[in-house]
Write a protein that binds this DNA or RNA. Structure first.
Length: 160
DNA sequence: GCCAACGTTGGC
DNA sequence: GCCAACGTTGGC
């Protein structure tokens, strides 16, 4: 039952890494690295658990919206890219003994029958009643919680 | 490309 | 600790 599990939304720019890219990855799986915001880091490090639902959102896209579903596929671990000088996410100030940035692995589980555009999410009264952080004004978090019931509703909209 | 909203940095 | 400047995000 999808609704019994905690759910999270992650953003990705599809021109960089799309849901289809995740679907095409080995084991449909990848490390979710490069998150460089403390609030999002706290969700990754402290709250995400194996089996949690992940809503894969395309940002900076036309249209932006929910592209598919995934799940948390590993326990949190220090984001390897912070220690990699060749990575654009390299953080020379991060100490290996007390890593600043964390990752989990995610695995794609379900293609939606179509992308659900942000405008449709905003227009849906049932989602509005759930107060999705994604839909709050000025939201810029790249990892955020999804309230109970919202995933099922998004799937309904996709089937819509 | 524009621009509003936001997070971070750094001078004081 | 304040807050202005700056850089980034992300919808349009």
């Amino acid at each position: 039952m999808i609704d019994d599990r905690p759910a999270w939304l992650v953003k990705s720019e599809p021109s960089v890494f799309s849901f289809d890219d995740l679907w095409a990855a080995p084991d449909r799986r990848t490390v979710w690295d490069g998150v460089r915001n403390y609030q999002a880091r706290n969700y990754l490090r402290d709250d995400m658990r194996v089996g949690d639902v992940v809503v894969f959102y395309h940002s900076n896209a036309a249209p932006a919206g929910v592209a598919g579903l995934a799940e948390v596929a590993s326990a949190p671990y220090p984001d390897p890219s912070q220690f990699d000088p060749a990575s654009p996410y390299h953080d020379p100030a991060s100490d290996a003994a007390a890593p600043r940035w964390w990752s989990v692995e995610v695995r794609a589980t379900r293609h939606l029958s179509r992308l659900v555009p942000l405008a449709e999410l905003r227009a849906d009264p049932r989602l509005a009643a759930l107060d999705l952080p994604l839909l709050r004004r000025g939201n810029r978090l790249s990892v955020m919680p999804v309230p109970p019931g919202a995933v099922a509703r998004i799937v309904e909209l996709a089937a819509g």
